[in-house]
Amino acid sequence: MSALFSITAPDDKLKDFLWAFIQGVELAGKFGKLLNPQLALRGWHTTGMIGTLAAAAAVGVYKKVTVKQMCSLLSLAATQTSGLEIQAGSDGKPFNAGMAARDAVSAYVLVENGFKANEDPFSNTRGWFKTIAGIDFSAQEMCKLWLHPAEISQPGLWFKQHPFCSAAMSGYDAAKILYQRGIRTKDCQTVNVHFPSGGDHALRYRLPMTGKEGKFSIEYIIWQVFRSGDVSDELFECPKVSKNFVKWQPCVSHKNDLETSDSAARPTKLTVKLKSGNFESVQVSFPEGSPKCPLSRKKLLEQLHLQVMVSGPEWINFCSKFTNPKWMVSELKQQLGK
């Protein structure tokens, strides 16, 4: 959305903005299905790679560029795609996302000013898919499935409630269930975290040293939940993790022994051996916020409310405007900027 906001004109309508966003999500979802998990396993950050193209496509739709311009726009975006997954846990990861938006907008500005690029960036000879993944790409086959069904509705969007990696969402929910059963950090002798093969690839920090690294550590997330019942967003920004966590962390181990036949599932199982000798276990496959376990409308509005930062009559007015197809994006930007 940041790319779309940056090129918004005073008379751009919200409905056009949202339609462009849907088209960008469609490209991201379709490309992601073709390339992942292999792309991520090779060490590429999906947001930096696919996100650049998705943002460029959304920008092109939003600004109603011609077919030839769209080809050049995607071509210029493709030649700029980059981003290493190793940046997770540092300022480099959001930097990847920011650069994806910036590069998409830069490509649009160049095209609008007459810049031309190769009009077949996805050629099966030396194009983007062949270069980064060694696979063939058929635009015709993809077009047959375009918006049928739409990626934004099936499988749908994931919504985070906290600023940690989505690969930890099932483990987070499982930890909260165990906390409700009475499990606390002081009770644990061992904690086994079970994933499918590769399911913990993004959770690369077993012993994070900073809060930002902790965003990609299931150990850090479970420790917070078992300690106080939930995570604290502030702890993901601290310059140094707690000594109590460092002392507790060795009791946690990973096991890649879960099987799943549902591509929409992201299963994680926690098995806790208590110091009493008893065991507690729980598995979550569809965490809250995933398409198959969506956040309630109330929770979605609460999250939006936190971002908009208005209250009372202003909040009611803001929500009502979302149902007005004639609302201008500039008005939305003004409201968000308050």
Score class of each variant (00 low, 15 high):
324 N>Y: 08
180 Q>G: 15
68 K>S: 14
46 T>V: 10
303 Q>H: 12
254 H>G: 00
83 G>L: 04
271 T>N: 12
3 A>P: 02
110 L>V: 03
91 D>W: 10
196 P>V: 15
306 L>D: 05
75 S>P: 06
230 D>T: 11
69 Q>N: 07
282 V>S: 02
334 Q>C: 06
171 G>E: 05
305 H>D: 02
82 S>Q: 09
98 G>V: 03
146 W>E: 07
87 Q>R: 11
202 A>Y: 14
213 E>N: 05
144 K>P: 00
72 S>F: 07
177 I>H: 09
130 K>F: 05
240 K>C: 07
153 S>I: 15
314 E>V: 09
206 R>G: 01
101 A>I: 00
316 I>Q: 14
94 P>N: 11
282 V>H: 12
56 A>E: 10
337 G>T: 08
214 G>I: 01
168 A>T: 10
176 K>I: 08
311 S>L: 08
315 W>P: 01
334 Q>W: 07
140 Q>N: 10
1 M>K: 08
283 Q>W: 01
135 I>N: 02
304 L>P: 00
195 F>Y: 15
245 F>W: 07
325 P>W: 09
15 K>D: 10
332 L>F: 11
291 P>W: 11
298 K>T: 14
119 E>T: 12
305 H>Q: 14
65 V>A: 04
5 F>H: 10
310 V>R: 11
80 Q>A: 12
238 C>D: 02
48 G>K: 05
180 Q>T: 09
116 K>H: 12
295 L>E: 01
44 W>G: 01
17 F>L: 08
210 T>S: 11
27 L>N: 01
272 V>C: 10
260 T>D: 06
104 A>M: 02
9 A>S: 13
89 G>I: 07
74 L>M: 15
137 F>I: 03
